[in-house]
Design a protein around this nucleic acid. Structure first.
Lengths: 230, 230
DNA sequence: CCAAAAGTGTTTTCGTTACACCCATGC
DNA sequence: GCATGGGTGTAACGAAAACACTTTTGG
């Protein structure tokens, strides 16, 4: 915040363009889940300083948009997705983090269901990357991703956000696998089921998996109604 | 982050001042504890739009400083304090949040021991305010404070940061009172002592309170060594 | 009938809560 | 001796962890 106790500073702020020579960007950590693995959506970095590296999806904040709006816009532009889960991680503001000048970036993360929008990906040079097998990324994006994953691991234990990674109908095995992929550890199946049913997060659809080569599991849906009420 | 997939945007970013017409500020929620109450250090707001209101301590981010550095600088300038606990809360970026123009602000919070620097306060128009009795503040500072307190309540249960609010030597009653002031609820004395001793956070100084009108309690210190090792 | 995963309960362990009495000091 | 807070232990409860066998389906 502008130093309000100092009228000179306020005046300077209003008149002097020097105070504005800092760029503000938004970077979105867009996470998806497929075949037992957590994935992140990246774009090839076109800056010569980072040739051959990938980066998170980001853009400059526009003068007339809130930072939350900006993150939605970026996600919409890149994936065509509306109405998704998106949450701020934190802001990264090292002086040298962008070779093109002083740019601080606000990190956001989003959890999306990969299958819902495979089509849109061909519009951009975007690819899903396995989170566990990522090498060096452009800028400080490894750090942003690591910070996001830390936050995500605690958040999924508190809030029912993980359902954003799954299709509308899913089996308990799929749900458990997503937890395991994010937490990076195996969970006991019986204890998991017990705990999940205690939450009242699920609607029993009384449907079953098809096209599986074993006994089909029951399908569930996330009880969205209940969480809109809160 | 600058949209690296789009060379035009990069070029525009490097050339066009329009991308820089956003101010970035830092606001510090400086919290202290005294006589059983949690307090926040505020400054009188000199903007005419917020006449008579108080605001958090903030300043504009300088071109050559990291955002973490900036928060340290602000704290140092205002309180004379060095080497304190300071942590990012999150960034607030509504379009209209600052009447002087577009300014996004990164919130930080600090926990300090009020007694250590009473002297410096006279240099500024600063006052400690009871967190529980705060009315409207300037800008979106109520929101920043609320967000900070939420974060703080979970953080003190995980990490030994609360000791920053206390003098070097303190009794268990004082420590418990700080927890209670932050959490806003009473704790059971026996359970609290049991739990605190299990953490290995404390050094038993084998000293006792003086100048109390009742049986003096034992004094403890936070085991800083142990946490520097980690 | 074989492979593969679904589905299901009980016991143990551990951390959290609730709770009451005597003790040391200042006045 | 009285008021004030310091210091202490145990029982009950509930959440989490450990753990194995039967069932259903496809092939």
């Amino acid at each position: 915040m502008l130093n309000e106790s100092n009228p000179r500073a306020v005046k300077k702020f209003q008149q002097d363009r020097e105070y504005f020579q800092i760029g503000v960007s938004i970077d979105c950590v867009i996470l998806g889940y497929e075949k037992g693995k957590l994935k992140v959506l990246l774009i090839e970095c076109k800056l010569k300083e980072y040739e051959g590296l990938w980066s998170l999806l980001g853009d400059i904040l526009q003068p007339e948009e809130d930072i939350d709006e900006a993150s939605y816009r970026i996600l919409k532009d890149r994936t065509g997705l509306d109405d998704v889960f998106l949450e701020q991680v934190q802001t990264f503001g090292s002086v040298k983090r962008h070779p093109g000048g002083r740019v601080i970036t606000v990190g956001y993360y989003s959890l999306i269901n990969i299958r819902d929008h495979q089509l849109k990906l061909s519009d951009n040079i975007l690819h899903w990357h396995l989170v566990n097998e990522l090498k060096e990324m452009a800028f400080d994006h490894n750090k942003i991703l690591d910070t996001t994953l830390c936050k995500l691991r605690t958040r999924i234990m508190e809030e029912p956000i993980i359902f954003n990674l799954l299709p509308k109908k899913f089996s308990l095995r799929e749900l458990q696998s997503v937890y395991e992929a994010i937490l990076g550890s195996k969970l006991d199946r019986r204890n998991f089921r017990k705990k999940i049913f205690l939450t009242d997060w699920l609607i029993d659809l009384n449907e079953f998996e098809t096209d599986v080569t074993h006994r089909p599991g029951k399908l569930y849906a996330f009880n969205f109604q209940k969480f809109l009420q809160k």
